[in-house]
Amino acid sequence: MSELKSTKVNWFFACAVEDVPENGGVCVKHGDDQIALFNFTRRGEWYATQNMCPHRQQMAISRGMIGSVEDEPKVACPFHKKTFSLKDGSCLSGDDYQLKTYPVKVEDGKVYIDVK
């Protein structure tokens, strides 16, 4: 567990792997922040972004549907279907929005988010 204390990263324990639906997302509470965490089983990848959609400030990204455009993994907000890259949080629907993204790692069936 020594690397968790490294200065650059701050791994926060979010939940167990089986708490997150395959190819779906959940919302993680971190203090006053809400983080959307995705288990992209089809790609064997995990992603985390802010839960608030920048379009109308709705806490909804974790309930969005994930998928890909070309090879870019993305999530669509359930409200107005704006889509965002899961890799860098940029808005793929052509608007000037940005989601904050977080690194994720999985160890021993546990999911950690780097909250810095």
Binding site: R42, R43, G64, M65, G67, S68, D71, A76, K81, T83
Partner: peptide, 10 residues
């Protein structure tokens, strides 16, 4: 092909 999206999934 690919990973699907909010259009084809529903």
């Amino acid at each position: 092909k690919g990973d699907g999206c909010e259009v084809c999934k529903p």
